[in-house]
């Protein structure tokens, strides 16, 4: 399904208005979920508070599995925002997509490589920043030449590879899911027979996409913490 994207120029930057819309929608949904869940905080948690506390503990465990909590605690909020944002973003494209005048407006923001790579670069940049901040510049530079000095080129490549794989893995999974959903809905479901035939695979693929979306959100957060730990930890 080839759709165009509604672009606009503003102050010399190119904006994909669909992305802008979906990023905003995702952020707002995440914020609303979080605020609704924490509106009536109590010592004895109920309902949504339980869920959000579970998320908090879940991210905490992800961080703890990579580094000790004393260093990792500062990434807690980052991990929480990442996992919730990416999960919601992944889910948004599943129920439907909106195409107006051949331009795709409603989709997962994570089905765009620009968005996912932005997140990936942000994460990697943060890992470098904290690597220097917590361990000092000397230790940070030494990381590129250990364990052997001639691994330096590989280390440089690794940084770019990390960034690319982190962003493109998310993009690829979500984009592929949406493409297939688009094919099932738009390509197969054209007459009565086609619609009936499309129902079961669509439902199955949507279920699978929910699974993939959740897994990708988890993987993104997990890898973020892995890269952070790699830069921040002392024994490397």
């Amino acid at each position: 399904m080839e759709h165009g994207s509604p672009t606009a120029e503003f102050l010399g930057f190119t904006f994909n208005l669909a992305n802008i819309l979906m990023i905003t929608v995702t952020s707002v949904i995440v914020f609303i979920i979080a605020v609704l869940a924490t509106r009536n905080l109590s010592m004895k948690p109920t309902g949504m508070q339980n869920f959000l506390e579970w998320v908090v503990d879940f991210v905490k465990n992800i961080i703890k599995s990579n580094m000790d909590w004393k260093t990792g605690g500062r990434f807690h909020m980052l991990g929480l925002t990442l996992i919730m944002y990416i999960f919601v973003a992944n889910m948004l494209g599943l129920p439907f997509s909106v195409v107006i005048d051949g331009k795709l407006w409603w989709k997962s923001p994570t089905a765009d490589p620009v968005v996912t790579l932005t997140l990936a670069i942000m994460v990697v940049a943060l890992s470098h920043y904290y690597g220097i901040k917590l361990n000092g510049f000397g230790h940070y530079m030494k990381g590129f030449f250990s364990p052997m000095w001639f691994l330096f080129p590989l280390k440089i490549i690794e940084e770019f590879a990390n960034t690319l794989t982190l962003g493109l893995r998310l993009y690829g999974n979500i984009f592929a899911g949406e493409i297939l959903l688009g094919l099932l809905a738009g390509g197969l479901a054209t007459g009565v027979g086609g619609t009936v035939a499309a129902i079961i695979p669509t439902i199955a693929w949507q279920g699978f996409s929910v699974f993939v979306g959740a897994i990708q959100a988890f993987i993104f957060t997990m890898l973020t913490m892995v890269y952070m730990a790699h830069k921040v930890s002392h024994d490397h």
């Binding site: 904006f15 994909n16 992305n19 990023i23 620009v114 997140l119 942000m122």
Partner: peptide, 12 residues
């Protein structure tokens, strides 16, 4: 889409 990058970062 350079604008998306900035917007995504900002929103995040």
């Amino acid at each position: 889409n350079s604008g998306d990058i900035i917007f995504q970062l900002l929103m995040f």
